[in-house]
Design a protein around this nucleic acid. Structure first.
Lengths: 303, 303
DNA sequence: TTTATACCATAAAATATATTTATTGTAAAT
DNA sequence: ATTTACAATAAATATATTTTATGGTATAAA
C-alpha cells in the first residue's frame, strides 16, 4: 500500500486546499496539515506555498507529485493483478448516474452484482449528465451512466439499455382501457410536467416539436422537480404525465398505473455508459462493466 | 515513503527468513510476522509458504515483490532528485573496506566528508575483499574499497590511492639512521609477520618471490593477526616488520618508528574503489564517490 | 527414541504514531 | 469593521505498531 502521507499529499495537490482534501479523505484538517508537515520535514523542504486563500505546489511539491502519481498507478495495477491472481475482487466502485437510472435501474443491477462480488463496495451518486461527465473525465468516477448521448468527445460511450417515456395514467383513468391515444387527445386531461432543463422534459418537448404539436395546447396543471413526486401526483388523480418506463415498472405491475402509447410521438431513448479510457480501471470496475452486458441486465430486470 | 509493510516484505523476500529480516530491519521477529500478516490479510492470500526451516514466496508473493521492488526503486530515485533539488543531502552510506583502509585512511576521509554533508550517516564495515565484493554485488554496500584488484568482473573498479608496504623499525633501531637496506640484511634482526592468508602477507611474500629471496632466511619470531598488534610489537622492540605506509603515518610523525626501503623489493600496491554499476546510487553515495577524487583525498591526508 | 535447535505464531503490555477537538492567527471579502 | 475562509498549533484521545514473553512444530543431533 502507498503510505498515508502520500495519499494525503496527492489529495491536497489535487484539491489545492487542505480542508477540502481532509473532507475527501474523511479526515479533519489538522490531520492533513500534520501529514503534509511530516513529508515536508522528511524532505526538508516546503511542498506547498500557503498563499492567501489557496495552496500551490512548490517545485519540490511538483517533483514529489510526479512520483506519487506514478507510485499510485503502480499500486492500482498491483491490486488489479493481485485480484486477478487470487480471485478476490474487492474495493470501492463509484458510479455516477442520472436520476431514473440511479433510482429505478441500478439498485437492481448493483444488488445482483453484489451477490457475485460481495467485497466490492458500490456507491451510486445521482447527478446531472454534465457533472457526471466531469467526474468521469477527472477520474473521480469509475463509471457514468446517463440518459442520452455524451458531449465530451474525450470520453468513451457505449449503449446500455433502451428507455421510453410513456404517458402514464392512473388505473381508473378513462384512457386506461385503451392501449394508445392520439396526440390531440392529450389536451383533454390535466397534464403534469417536469421542470424545465431536466432531461426528461427536454426529450418530451423535442418529441412534441418533431410531431409538430404545440406544447401550449396542453392543459398543464403542475410542474414538478422529480419523478417520484410526479408518480404521487398521478396516483392521487391530479393529472397524467410522461415518465420513463423504468420508473413506473413497479406501479404498472401492481396495477396502479397504466402506460399508454401516444400515436406519432417518438420518445424512445438510450441509457449510455460513459467511460474514461485514460483511467486505469480496477478489477472491480472491469467486472462491473462486464456485468452491464445487455443480456445479463435483461435477465436481471425482467425477472 | 514506501509503507513499512512493503519494506518488511522486501526484506523477508530477500532473506527468506523472518528472524533474519527482523535483525536486518532492527525489529523483533513478531513485528515482522505482524507486518507480513497485515499484507496477507489485505491481499487475502498467503505471500510466503512457511515450509520447514525456510520461507518461500508464493506466486502472489512473487507478484507483490515485483511491484514492491519497482516502487522501492522509484522511491530511491525520488529521494535523489529531491536532494538534488533542495541541496539537502542525507541518508545512510554503507562502505565496506579492508583493514588498513578502514582503520587508517577512511576515518580521516569520512571525517572531512561529514563536515560538508553532516546529515549523511556513514558506516564503515571492515571485512575481507571477498566479502566486500559480495556485498557490493548484492547491493548491500554502496561502495567497497579494497587493497588490490577485484576478481568479480561484474563490478566496476577504479583506482583510489597509492600504498606501499614499508619495513618499519623502532626509532632507536640501528637501521633507523639509514634510508634503505639490502634484502640480505633483513635476516639480521627478528622479524614479525602477518598471519597467512591476509592481503599484506600475500603481497609481501609475492615481493620476496619476485626478488628471488627465500622467506625461510628470515628470522621470524612472531606471527600476528592484525596491524595494530604488529605496531605494538615493533614499539616494544620485539622485532621489525613490513606495514602499509598509511598504518604507520602517525607513529612516523611522532618519531616513534622509521620506515625503511628495502632495495630491490617492490611492495607498492593500489587501494581500489569497487562499485556496482547496476545499483542506483543515492545522492549521498554519488557525492562520496566524487569526494574520493585523488586530489581531494591528498589534500585531506597530507595536512 | 529423546533432546536441542531453528524456525514462525500468538497474546498481552508497552510504546509510538496519527487523529480529533478546541483554539488561534491571518488575509481577503463583505 | 466584521465576517469568512482558510491553515497552524496544542492537548487529549484513539489507533497502530512494536516488544516482551511464551507456545508450537519440524528437523537435526545425541
Amino acid at each position: 500500500m502507498l503510505s498515508d502521507s502520500m495519499r494525503v499529499f496527492i489529495t491536497v495537490a489535487d484539491k489545492k486546499n487542505f480542508s477540502k482534501a481532509a473532507k475527501a479523505l474523511s479526515l479533519t484538517q489538522p490531520a492533513v496539515s500534520f501529514q503534509i508537515q511530516t513529508l515536508e520535514q522528511y524532505y526538508q523542504t516546503m511542498l506547498f506555498d500557503r498563499v492567501n486563500r489557496h495552496v500551490k505546489l512548490t517545485s519540490a511539491g511538483e517533483l514529489l507529485l510526479k512520483y506519487a502519481v506514478h507510485m499510485n498507478n503502480l499500486q492500482a495495477e498491483l491490486e488489479r493483478n493481485m485480484q486477478q491472481l487470487t480471485g478476490h475482487v474487492k474495493g470501492e466502485l463509484l458510479i455516477g448516474a442520472s436520476t431514473t437510472i440511479g433510482e429505478y435501474v441500478l439498485p437492481y443491477v448493483v444488488g445482483s452484482f453484489k451477490k457475485e462480488y460481495p467485497d466490492v463496495n458500490v456507491t451510486i451518486q445521482i447527478m446531472n449528465t454534465e457533472l457526471i461527465e466531469g467526474m468521469v473525465s477527472s477520474k473521480n468516477f469509475d463509471i457514468g451512466i446517463v440518459e442520452g448521448p455524451v458531449k465530451n468527445d474525450k470520453l468513451h460511450m457505449q449503449e446500455f439499455l433502451d428507455d421510453e417515456l410513456m404517458l402514464t395514467v392512473p388505473a381508473d383513468h378513462p384512457w386506461a382501457e385503451k392501449r394508445h391515444i392520439k396526440i390531440e387527445e392529450l389536451a383533454d386531461y390535466p397534464f403534469i410536467i417536469r421542470e424545465p432543463g431536466s432531461g426528461s422534459r427536454l426529450d418530451f418537448e423535442q418529441a412534441l416539436i418533431d410531431a409538430e404539436y404545440d406544447i401550449e395546447n396542453l392543459n398543464i396543471v403542475m410542474e414538478l422537480g422529480n419523478t417520484t413526486s410526479i408518480k404521487s401526483a398521478i396516483l392521487s388523480g391530479l393529472g397524467v404525465s410522461v415518465i420513463s418506463k423504468w420508473a413506473i415498472k413497479d406501479l404498472v405491475r401492481q396495477g396502479k398505473v397504466v402506460p399508454i402509447a401516444i400515436e406519432g410521438l417518438r420518445m424512445k431513448r438510450k441509457f449510455n455508459i460513459i467511460l474514461n479510457d485514460e483511467k486505469f480501471q480496477s478489477e472491480a470496475a472491469s467486472k462491473f462493466i462486464d456485468f452491464l452486458d445487455i443480456d445479463n441486465i435483461n435477465s436481471i430486470l425482467h425477472k
